[in-house]
Design a protein around this nucleic acid. Structure first.
Length: 476
DNA sequence: CTTGTCTGCCCC
DNA sequence: ATTCTGC
DNA sequence: GCAGAATGGGCAGACAAG
């Protein structure tokens, strides 16, 4: 569209770190040498977007590219910027749900709290905006309806002692390493939704059948499915092989057994329950469901909760959740009413063998680093890391590593090994993507071990040993 | 038909 | 997921 | 305290290319 070479465009993109801004610049350079443009209308853009959304199958990518090329070539630089932003769903204009909520509240002179409440229940700002037009009463009277999934309530990280105060009692439940789901049933029809509210019913026929059998009609419940074998939870990777599958579902269901665990109920028998206290919802859930309700301890004793937590870890779960007994169900909110307790991260000392240029606010520095373990006198990659750095540390690393670069390949650079990072992680997992066969789950940067030479970094044998140790059967 | 690469209102 | 940052 | 931003491993799917 601008007659530029592919490399120029990539170069531009990595320089500004924002595709919209990059397109704007490229188009403005082009307009100096080009003479005509056809005026682009909103209808043209809409038509293009509709056309693209309907394309699939063979050669569809090429066709999509053709349509985008047509739009951009008749766009002004600013238009190009925002067409690109629309296509990537990436506006970077600092307007999130909060600002939108306040704008709707002001436009229709209603309480922002009610706008938020209605959006929590209906999960559709467009619909909420229409309700706001009719006034506060309409917002107040919104109700949950089966097959309109609501956003899930989220938890924050914490510690047991941090949650327990004077005389505070909490509900303690296992934290499962699986996939969150919401299950709806009405008039004999069942549907299951993922955390991002995608429908996964057809991928989970076995789980849906179990829940159908265990639950009455007209309910919405919240839970987590895990993969199990011989009564023990399987690695998260097994869950991934099942959860959003479209093809060979029956075969996969045969190979990997999935079990639901229910921990909340949002709606039952025409009644919305999200504003009830958690203990009440729990009581209703245990009455309503004949099976699959997650075990629960209610306690205010730190020692007792610690024991329960260690039982959870011994059983192969991630940790526990602590839930305040009187908390409402707040869709989409990561509030302090639910707190997850997980083990502190283990750490490894790893050699920095490469890095990749960043994007956005990291466009001028390395955005992630390649990490390796020692193995028979060689260095073997085991993971990357991209979080845990302050901006200052990223700048320093970018500068200090310049002299170590021995090879470049696209946005990747490779170093003469010198630095050792201490890296925190939650788990070592089998990896098909790294040469050594293992990778770290949730890696994060702790610090540069300036006191350590690369010869003192951890080895592939260390990693394997830790993997085996973590997966050995527990004997009691 | 196989293989490689990229994407996902993706899962964590 | 985790983490840092600006408000 | 909150929301936003930038990034991790890994899976199935969808396409493109051979």
């Amino acid at each position: 569209m601008t007659g530029r070479r592919r490399e120029d465009v990539i170069d531009q993109l990595s320089r500004v770190g924002d595709a919209g801004a990059a397109v704007e610049e490229l188009l403005s350079q082009k307009s100096q040498t080009s003479f005509f443009t056809v005026e682009l209308t909103l209808a043209d853009i809409m038509a293009g977007l509709v056309e693209i959304s309907g394309m699939e199958g063979g050669r569809s990518q090429r066709e999509k590219i053709r349509v985008i090329q047509r739009l951009l070539s008749s766009a002004s630089p600013l238009e190009g910027h925002y067409i690109t932003a629309i296509l990537l769903e990436d506006f970077r204009i600092g307007v999130g749900d909060g600002n939108l909520r306040d704008a709707i509240a002001q436009a229709f002179t209603v309480d922002p709290k009610l706008v938020e409440y209605a959006n929590q229940v209906r999960n559709d700002m467009g619909e909420v905006s229409v309700l706001a037009l009719s006034g506060e009463e309409a917002l107040r009277s919104v109700r949950l309806v089966p097959f309109h999934p609501v956003r899930m309530m989220l938890a924050r990280q914490g510690t047991i002692s941090g949650v327990l105060g004077e005389g505070v009692r909490v509900a303690v439940e296992y934290k499962y390493d699986g996939a969150r789901f919401q299950f709806h049933k009405q008039n004999g029809t069942c549907r299951m939704y993922s955390r991002r509210l995608e429908e996964v019913t057809s991928a989970m026929p076995d789980v849906v059948a179990l829940l159908d059998g265990a639950l009455p009609d007209d309910v919405i419940v919240d839970g987590e499915v895990i993969a199990v074998q011989d009564g023990r939870p399987m690695p998260f990777q097994m869950v991934l092989r099942r959860f959003r599958r479209k093809h060979n579902v029956a075969q996969a269901a045969d190979a990997i057994t999935m079990v639901p665990n229910l921990f909340d109920i949002l709606y039952y028998n025409q009644e919305m329950l999200i504003d009830r206290p958690f203990i009440e919802r729990r009581e209703i859930l245990t009455k309503v469901s004949s099976r699959y309700v997650t075990p629960q301890l209610v306690s205010g004793k730190e020692e007792e909760i610690e024991d329960y937590y260690h039982d959870a870890l011994d059983a192969g779960h991630e940790g526990v959740m602590l839930k305040l007994l009187d908390s409402r169900y707040t869709p989409g909110v990561r509030g302090k009413d639910w707190v997850k307790i997980k083990p502190e991260a283990d750490t490894l000392d790893l050699v920095v063998t490469g890095a990749e240029w960043g994007e956005g606010k990291r466009a001028q520095v390395f955005g992630s680093f390649l990490l390796s373990v020692r193995s028979n006198g060689r260095l073997v990659p085991i993971s990357r890391v991209a979080t845990g750095f302050s901006d200052e540390q990223l700048n320093w690393l970018f500068q200090t590593l310049q002299d170590d670069i021995i090879r470049k390949d696209g946005k990747m650079v490779y170093f003469e090994p010198r630095l050792v990072f201490e890296i925190g992680y939650s788990e070592i997992q089998k990896s098909p993507n790294y040469e050594g066969g293992y990778a770290l789950r949730f890696p994060r940067f702790i610090e540069v071990r300036e006191d350590k030479d690369i010869k003192e970094a951890n080895t592939a044998e260390d990693v394997e040993e830790r993997y085996i140790l973590a997966h050995r059967p527990v004997n009691n």
